[in-house]
Design a protein around this nucleic acid. Sequence first.
DNA 1: GAGGGCATGTAAGCCGTTACATGATTTC
DNA 2: GAAATCATGTAACGGCTTACATGCCCTC
Lengths: 186, 186
Amino acid sequence: MLRFILLGFLNYLPLNGYQLKMLIDQSTGHFWHAYHSQIYTTLQALEDQGLVTSQTDESDDRLKRRTYEITEAGRAELRAWLSKPMLETAQIKDELLVRVFFSGQRDHADVIDELRIQRRLHQQQLEAYMAIAADHLLKVVTPEAPPPVASLKADSRMWTATLDYGIRYERMVLEWIDNLVNQLKA
Amino acid sequence: MLRFILLGFLNYLPLNGYQLKMLIDQSTGHFWHAYHSQIYTTLQALEDQGLVTSQTDESDDRLKRRTYEITEAGRAELRAWLSKPMLETAQIKDELLVRVFFSGQRDHADVIDELRIQRRLHQQQLEAYMAIAADHLLKVVTPEAPPPVASLKADSRMWTATLDYGIRYERMVLEWIDNLVNQLKA
DNA sequence: GAGGGCATGTAAGCCGTTACATGATTTC
DNA sequence: GAAATCATGTAACGGCTTACATGCCCTC
């Protein structure tokens, strides 16, 4: 999965591993996070498969900075992946729900405490999402240059859609927690 | 994680691997699924650690049926896990969101088609959740006997809470998809 | 006797997590 | 000169997925 995220970003412009990590943390990481270790190894794998090329920037400094560029094969791979629609839904994996499921015999007060911790965290996440301006992402991808791709507007709309998902998700969780806490207090 | 799910169920009553698989599929599997291969190997690991014991039923047939029972150490392990509250939120991992994120350059019609497939699947899941009566789970766990644990009522409430989560989640996703489809059509 | 449900296992491989490890540049 | 940020890697491990493999029992 991460391979497609990397190809997806490199499809916009050449980037190094560190920049990819930053981009992911601020965008796709909210629904598919990755550690830098995995990013570097996956980039290596993509290069071995000829889907990206890399070059060390010798020009301006002695920093071992490696910039990755997508190849035509890489773009084809990305397009092929996108063209095959998902036919199942994503599986939820949420430890909190497992904990709640088996919390029947726990002290209600303890369960409520835990739910309140979660509530605070989700509240923070909601606020973080709402603070992200829609065009913020545009700025991240294109620091001080005009868009390298013709219509980043269509992309921007999709980015906003995933942000919208995050907001709806966090609101839903907050409502669920509030509802459950109230029930447990009664 | 699966270890705690297994301990959680075995904390109610002794079960074999197959029964655990069935129970998971119908309950916790909605937020933490598991393949039978992992269930059997994890049960073996739990036994090696003295958290469960097993015995082959020789009594009535030649079927190699192995029933697992939780030990006192197992109950302690489960209690210890439950008593330590989660301090982070679960990470979402949703391929659909990754796909949407990078779908800016795709044909809108194709994206809409894909979203409609997802809509149908989520609609079905929502209906499945709503069809599950709250006491259904009670029946699954205690087929034709009185509850082995004093108050399964408290547990039942928690099970219902996770089911409620599922319903809220599916509704949220449906609304998000409808909203996005409408936007893409405009 | 064919198919579906009951029942249990092994093994390879992939992906992701955690930890270890290093070093330059920039800012206070 | 200390701390934060930029920048890149390796390695061990654990958990999950996929595939392979087997065999009984019951119903049609």
